[in-house]
Amino acid sequence: MADQVSSTQGMTQHREIGTIGYIVGTGASVLLLPVLPFLIALYLFQRATGGRGEPGSN
């Protein structure tokens, strides 16, 4: 009785799945692009005030 039905070819790359991943990643980047100025402003504000955002750091 055989334990394996087909021969193993190892790890194979699926180009369609990789392409879909790049498309989804690009779409997510485009959607998050309008948030970037707010993140930059928050980062600059935290640097200017010297706060690290940790509880009890006063």
Rank of each mutant, 00 (worst) to 15 (best):
I40M: 07
I20L: 12
A2Y: 07
L33A: 15
R52E: 03
L36Y: 05
Q46E: 09
G56Y: 05
Q9M: 13
G10Y: 03
G53V: 04
L33P: 01
Y43M: 12
S29A: 13
P34F: 05
R52W: 04
S29H: 05
V30T: 14
L44G: 00
S7N: 07
Y43W: 13
R47V: 11
G10E: 04
M1R: 03
M1C: 11
T49R: 15
V35P: 00
V24C: 03
P37S: 09
V5A: 07
T8P: 01
H14Q: 09
F45D: 03
Q9A: 14
T49L: 12
F38Q: 07
Q46A: 15
L42N: 11
N58D: 07
G51Q: 08
I40R: 05
I23A: 10
G51C: 06
T19G: 01
Q9I: 11
L33R: 03
Q46F: 14
S57P: 02
L44K: 15
T49W: 05
Q46V: 04
V35R: 05
G21I: 02
G25T: 04
T12F: 05
R52G: 00
G53D: 04
L33W: 10
S57Y: 05
G27H: 04
G50Q: 08
L31D: 07
L42I: 11
G21T: 02
L36W: 06
T12R: 15
N58K: 08
V35M: 12
P34A: 08
I17Y: 01
G21F: 02
R52H: 00
I23Y: 04
Q9S: 13
H14V: 11
G25Y: 01
L36I: 15
T12C: 09
I40A: 07
R47E: 00
I17C: 00
D3M: 15
G18H: 04
V30C: 09
V35C: 07
T49S: 14
V24I: 14
R15T: 04
G27R: 03
T49Y: 08
Q13G: 03
L44D: 00
G25Q: 06
P34H: 08
L31R: 11
S29G: 10
T12A: 10
Q46P: 03
P37M: 07
M1W: 09
T26R: 01
H14I: 09
L44W: 10
S7T: 14
Q9D: 03
L33S: 11
S29T: 10
P55A: 14
L42S: 13
I17F: 01
D3I: 08
G56N: 11
G18Q: 08
V24Q: 01
Y22L: 05
S6N: 14
Y43V: 15
T12E: 06
L32T: 12
P55M: 12
P34G: 04
Q9Y: 12
V30N: 05
G27I: 14
R15A: 10
P34Q: 10
L44I: 15
L39M: 10
